[in-house]
Design a protein around this nucleic acid. Structure first.
Lengths: 214, 214
DNA sequence: CCTTGTGAAAACTTTCACAGCT
DNA sequence: AGCTGTGAAAGTTTTCACAAGG
């Protein structure tokens, strides 16, 4: 119910800022200007200053931004000061890779449970994450208070599985399938489509004469 | 050197259109209106019509869009009528999953070569893809005429590896590392950052009261 | 001086609404 | 009658350029 004064475009850049400030802190850098930041993350310095001003985050004129302060600021803003548990649904090829993927290194998100229908793997522990049967999903998500799921099932199971997630009370789905799923509009779906990304990149290379970024 | 009259926002949707028209064709659907399309892919019908008009792709007034025609149109537009070979650099956990990932089902992109520094896997074939040593990269990319690479090395090797790719003449990099790499501006880098995607999704859930999409 | 924060302009994207074609 | 294609409006995002503050 927070009012939404921060533009979507800015929100999408927040994790980039957070990560870069973490990096700077690790490097031992104490302060940084928007111009230096721009070089490091390839975002125009005016955009950076505008973004930060939406957040009310204060730099110091003539000085720049204090790295330690900003790390803490973004950590709170992105809820990275407490752990967020998510579940992964569909322990196939990609699912397994994500279970093994080290989200924790730069983020306080952890995959706490996985679900599949294959009796061969239900009951096992993959990369430290227990694999449950799909029919336990509602129970487990409630028990573990999880409301975000990573969807890595096959395309033809995507909509059916999404329905089950919605039914289990999930509020956010990170959908790795190429299927655009129908969900009630209080549920948010973000898409990561690997084949699309490659196609788009290739399209730009074939058609683009300019020097544009992203 | 083609002039760039097609907006970036439209270009990013092209693979979605292409895929959905393929799906419609498989379903046996012969024609579709922008309104029906809008329901299927959750993009406003006016946006769809505007996108298509940038492409000069013709629908028929009072009729809609011919599915077979549009499949062919997008296939050509996205260069999916010929195979594009790409290489994958960094055969770790995620790299392996991508090697196994079935890009070919919806796209004519194929991972034709993989590279790593680990002597244990150099010389082996993973998911049908030969793994070469990193120092063969220039030679192999020239030989196989590959100019797009998927970068799945570890974060601390990202910049160094990107330099090698640039040196080998690569024009496009799909970067799965969270590192923002420095490359000459005739090289295009797109980022897929899994931890970022999760953080952004979670941020929206925690802060968003509205019913916005993506 | 140096660098932020921000009005104002420019650029880009989406959406409305309807003329025009089939 | 129905749906596309598109001017024009509205909304969003980026960029310029500079006043104001440390």
């Amino acid at each position: 119910m927070t009012e939404n004064i921060v533009p979507n475009a800015t929100i999408k850049r927040l994790p980039i800022y957070y990560r870069y400030f973490q990096f700077l802190k690790d490097e031992g850098t104490k302060k940084i200007s928007s111009g230096e930041l721009a070089e490091g993350i390839k975002i125009d310095s005016a955009t950076i200053r505008r973004d930060f001003s939406y957040l009310g985050a204060l730099g110091k004129r003539g000085y720049g931004y204090d790295v330690n302060e900003l790390v803490d600021f973004f950590k709170k803003l992105l809820n990275q000061d407490r752990r967020t548990n998510v579940a992964l649904v569909g322990v196939g090829n990609l699912g397994n890779a994500l279970l093994n993927y080290n989200f924790s290194r730069t983020s306080n998100v952890r995959i706490a449970a996985a679900f599949d229908i294959d009796p061969e793997i239900v009951g096992t522990v993959k990369s430290g994450v227990p694999v449950y049967d799909m029919n336990e999903i509602k129970e487990q998500l409630e028990l573990q208070q999880i409301d975000v799921c990573i969807l890595t099932v096959s395309s033809n199971a995507a909509q059916k599985t999404a329905n089950m997630l919605v039914d289990a009370g999930v509020k956010g789905i990170l959908n790795f399938t190429p299927i655009i799923v129908n969900v009630p509009n209080n549920v948010r779906v973000h898409y990561v489509d690997l084949a699309n990304e490659l196609q788009t990149l290739i399209y730009f290379l074939d058609h683009d004469s300019s020097l544009d970024h992203e």
